Amino acid sequence: MNALPSTQANAWPSKVPEVTLGFWLIKIAATTLGETGGDAVSMSMNLGYLAGTGIFAAIFLAAVIAQVKAKKFHPFLYWATIVATTTVGTTLADFVDRSLGIGYAGGSSILLALLLGSLFAWHRTLGSVSVSTVNSPNAEAFYWVTIMFSQTLGTALGDWTAGAAGLGYTGAALVFGALLAVTAATYCWTRVSRTLLFWIAFILTRPLGAVVGDYLDKPLAAGGLALSRYSASITLFVFIIACILLLRQRAARTMH
């Protein structure tokens, strides 16, 4: 067997997956589940956005603690934590935008500032925001906080585009799908920072999932399909489990 290059030999085990096409497929499904699941608790169960945020924040915190304490990469634990970020992102964004009366523009601006602040603090503290450097508890903490803010911002952007901007769910999905296609093309045919492109794609998949989730469960009069939030959530959950089982999930290689 050939010896590993020195950069690979110094790599530490990772608890985050390789970023592949399968990763993005599961990510989009998880963000859609976050929208339908979050709405099921806050709206269908009539618990409200604040109570829903409290419930999902507790689940998110427990999942992150389990993820940080884990000794190696566990696909189901990782994606459960991602789903937790999407559900708390859904209810938190709705609470900020609607219950606090800030509106989509104000809520999106606040959440963008929080996301940029998290990335700045991460870079200032550890020197990089690349997922290839997520190899310590501190890096994992920054990673999950940044993801949570990105999921919340994505929810607000999706609602803003589909609602206030008047594009509707289909139009908003086409817009975010096109932006993701541009990001993918930039990745394939340019040398733009892979770290920058990763975070752009990560943020854009959230509003795409948000508007698809809304399209599935919102009333016909509002431009949706009026599907049950519970049945839509269960279907997405089963799809994610199938993808995790069928699409090989390998830990990414991180560098010391």
Rank of each mutant, 00 (worst) to 15 (best):
V41H: 03
V182H: 06
P219R: 02
N138A: 14
L174T: 06
G158A: 07
V238E: 02
V83W: 00
G224S: 09
A3Y: 10
A40P: 00
W12A: 14
L25V: 14
I102Y: 13
S130P: 08
G106E: 06
G154E: 07
A9M: 10
G163W: 03
A221S: 14
S118C: 12
V131Y: 04
K71M: 12
Y215P: 02
F95V: 08
R191G: 12
K69L: 15
H74G: 08
A232R: 04
I240N: 08
A58R: 10
A173C: 06
I110K: 04
K71G: 13
D97L: 09
T91M: 04
W144R: 10
R229M: 13
T87S: 11
A221E: 14
V88T: 13
F95Y: 15
L180Y: 07
T20C: 06
L114C: 14
F142S: 04
A226K: 01
L236Y: 04
A58H: 08
T155E: 11
S231H: 07
K27N: 12
C188Y: 13
H256N: 14
A51M: 15
L208D: 04
M148R: 02
S130Y: 06
G158L: 05
G89V: 02
L157T: 05
T7W: 15
S118R: 01
R206T: 15
T170C: 00
A222E: 15
F237P: 03
F149M: 09
V145R: 02
I147K: 00
A173T: 03
G101V: 04
W12Y: 11
I234A: 14
N46R: 14
I234L: 15
R253E: 13
F149I: 02
V175D: 03
A29R: 00
A251L: 10
A84S: 12
T32G: 11
W24T: 03
W79S: 10
I147G: 00
G34E: 09
L115C: 01
V175S: 03
G101T: 07
V64W: 07
L116F: 10
T90N: 12
T161K: 03
L197E: 10
A210Y: 01
R229T: 15
Q67E: 14
I203T: 15
G209Y: 11
A121E: 02
T36R: 08
I26V: 14
R98P: 00
